[in-house]
Design a protein around this nucleic acid. Structure first.
Lengths: 332, 332
DNA sequence: TTGAAAGCGCTAACAA
DNA sequence: TTGTTAGCGCTTTCAA
C-alpha cells in the first residue's frame, strides 16, 4: 500500500486536515508548519491518491477528448493543443478513439461519464445528436467540432470551410482556370457540402457554373485518391484544375497521375485541404488551423467548466488560409 | 449530483451491498433480484462513479502510456495498439506527452503515480534510468520501449534497429553506393547509436569505413531535417546516399534539397526509418513495426499487472523490414 | 440470499 | 493555527 496522508500526519505529528491544507497551499497554515510538512512529505515520497481526492472533491481535473483516430495527424494536433491549454489549468486529458463507430462513441461517452471528467471535447460523426444529448442529459459540459448539433445549445469550434473553398476557387479563377473540378468526400461529409458551396459561390460571382461532371464522388483517403487519379488519367474531358477533398486525396491523385505520365501542375492543377506537415510535394492547399481549433475548444470548455461561460451557445469560426505553393499553374 | 448506488438501493428497496453485487455480476444474488436491480439502474441512467470504485478497490483499470509526442504517427500507432489490447481487458489508457523534456517526463510519472494506474508503458528519452527507478521505487509495473535501462530488471520491447540499419546500409552498398552518410538523432538517442552500429558493421563487412564527416548531428524533426538539408545543399562534399534518422527527418531534408534544385534520388539517395503512412514521397525506408510494438508492450504489461509475469526480465526484439520504394538510385 | 457496517484516502466544515 | 469529525460512493467482510 502506498503512503497516505495519515502516514504523513503521524510522522509530522499534525492532523490530517493540517497536512492536507499545507500540501494544497491552503491559507491558514503557519509557514514553518507548512514547510515542515512539505519537506517530510517530499522525503517520504508521498504522492496523493487522486481517486480519494477526486471523490472527496466531487470532481476530477480531467478533460475528455473523443476523436475518430489519434493516428490521424489532424486529431493528434488537436489533442496536443487541448492538452497544452488544459495543463495550464492543471487538467489532465483523457483521449478516447472511436474510429467513427457509433458503438465505440457510445462507449467512450460512458467511460467519460464514469470517470466523472469535468468536460468533454467531442468529434462525433455525422448527425448523431442523440449521443450529444446523452452528455447533455447528465449535465456534462462539452464542446463539439464541426457543425453544432441540431437543437442542442452547444458550443462549437470549426474551421471556415466555406470561405476556404471560396478562396481556393477564386485563386484558381484568377490564375486563369475556368474548368474547375471538386473531389467530394462523400454524402456524409458536412465539410464537403460546405466546401462545394464555397466553390459554387466563388465561381458564380465570376459568372461561371461549377459543372456536375467535374464533381468527383468520392475520395477521402490516399487510396481512394489514387484510384480516382487513375480514372482521371484515362478520362477524356478533364478540368484544368481540381480542388481535392483533402491533402491525402490530393497525394493519391498526384501519385496516380504522375505514374500515368501526367504532371502537376503542368497538366492539371491541384489544391488540397488541411496542409499536412508531412507533405513533400509542394501542394497549394487550404490550411485548417487544427492547433487553434484545439486551443479554442479547450478554452471554451474550461470556461464552461469553471462556470464563467454564459448560457448562450457559442460558435467559434476559425479562419482558414490558402497556402500557395507550386501545384497550380498560371494560365493567364 | 449524479445518481449513486444508494439511490438505486432506495429505489429498489435492496441494500447497497446487494445492488453492488448485482451490478457487478457477483455470485450470490437471486437472478430475479439481479434482473430487477439492473433494470432499474438502467432506467435511472445510473453510471457508477469510477473514483469511488477505484478508491475502494485500491486500483484503477488504467494503463498509462508516456510518449514523446502523440503527433508523431509512430507514437500514435503505438498508442492505438496499446489501447486495443487494453480494451480487451477493460482497461482504459491514459496518454501523456513529454516532448522528450525531462521535467515533463517526471511530471508524467507523478501523474501516473497519482492516478494509481495499474501500470505504465514508457518511452523515456536516453539513459535517464532514474526516472524508471522512480516508477520502480513505487512498485509500479512498467514496460519500456527501446533499450532496457541499466541495472533495472525491466521488460522491454524494441525494434531491431541494429539489423534494420544493417540491411539499409547493405542495400545501399549493393546499389553501388560507397559514400554513405548517416543523420544522427543526437547524443541521447539510443536508436541512433544502434543504427550507427548497424551501418558501420554492414559497411565494414564490405571493407568500407563509415566516414566521420558523413555523420550529421543532429536532426530528429522535419524542421531540423530541413535545416540540415539546406546545409547539405550548400556543401561541397556530399555522400551519394544518406540514411536518415527517421522519415520525418528525411522529409525535411528532401524538401530542402528540392527547394535548392537537388533531386532525390537523382542527386542523392535517401533511406528513412519508420515507414510513416502519410508519406507522399516514395521513400525507401526501414519499417518499424509500431503496431506490434504497442501490442507486445501492452501484453507484457498486462501480464505483469495480473501477476502472471515471471520475475525474470523479458525483452522482445521485433524484426524490421526494408521497404523499397524510389528514393535510392542504382549506381551499378 | 440479503443487510449492516466498516473502510478506501482525501477534503472541508466546524470546533477548539 | 490546528484538530476533530463527517462525509464523498463504492466494495467487502461478516451477520442475519
Amino acid at each position: 500500500m502506498r503512503l497516505t496522508i495519515s502516514d504523513i500526519a503521524k510522522k509530522t505529528g499534525y492532523a490530517k486536515s493540517t497536512v492536507s491544507a499545507a500540501l494544497n497551499n491552503k491559507p491558514g497554515v503557519k509557514p514553518e508548519t507548512r514547510e515542515e510538512i512539505c519537506r517530510i512529505a517530499e522525503e517520504m515520497n508521498y504522492i496523493p491518491n487522486e481517486f480519494a481526492r477526486n471523490l472527496s472533491m466531487q470532481t476530477a481535473n480531467i478533460i475528455g477528448i473523443i476523436v475518430r483516430d489519434i493516428t490521424n495527424p489532424f486529431y493528434a494536433k488537436i489533442c496536443r493543443a487541448v492538452e497544452n491549454v488544459a495543463a495550464r489549468y492543471s487538467y489532465t486529458t483523457l483521449i478516447l478513439n472511436t474510429d467513427g463507430i457509433r458503438e465505440k462513441e457510445l462507449n467512450a461517452i460512458r467511460v467519460m461519464l464514469g470517470q466523472r471528467v469535468s468536460g468533454v471535447i467531442v468529434d462525433i460523426s455525422g448527425k448523431d445528436t442523440d449521443l450529444l444529448e446523452e452528455l447533455d442529459k447528465f449535465g456534462m459540459p462539452f464542446v463539439v467540432f464541426g457543425t453544432a448539433a441540431g437543437e442542442l445549445s452547444v458550443d462549437s469550434v470549426e474551421a471556415d470551410d466555406y470561405n476556404g473553398a471560396y478562396q481556393a476557387a477564386e485563386y484558381l479563377y484568377l490564375a486563369g482556370h475556368r474548368k474547375i473540378g471538386f473531389v467530394h468526400g462523400g454524402p456524409e461529409s458536412v465539410y464537403s457540402q460546405r466546401r462545394l458551396g464555397g466553390i459554387r459561390e466563388a465561381l458564380e460571382q465570376r459568372g461561371i457554373r461549377l459543372e456536375e461532371k467535374y464533381i468527383y464522388y468520392k475520395a477521402k483517403t490516399i487510396q481512394e485518391g489514387y484510384l480516382l487519379g487513375k480514372q482521371l488519367a484515362g478520362a477524356q474531358d478533364l478540368p484544368t484544375a481540381l480542388i481535392a477533398y483533402n491533402d491525402l486525396t490530393a497525394v493519391g491523385i498526384i501519385r496516380a497521375l504522375e505514374e500515368s505520365g501526367l504532371h502537376v501542375p503542368e497538366d492539371i492543377s491541384i489544391i488540397g485541404f488541411d496542409d499536412i506537415e508531412l507533405m513533400t510535394f509542394p501542394l497549394t492547399t487550404v490550411q485548417i488551423p487544427e492547433y487553434e481549433m484545439g486551443e479554442n475548444a479547450a478554452a471554451l470548455l474550461l470556461e464552461r467548466i469553471m462556470g464563467k461561460g454564459s448560457d448562450t451557445r457559442r460558435e467559434v469560426l476559425l479562419k482558414t488560409k490558402l497556402v500557395v505553393r507550386k501545384s497550380v499553374k498560371r494560365l493567364l
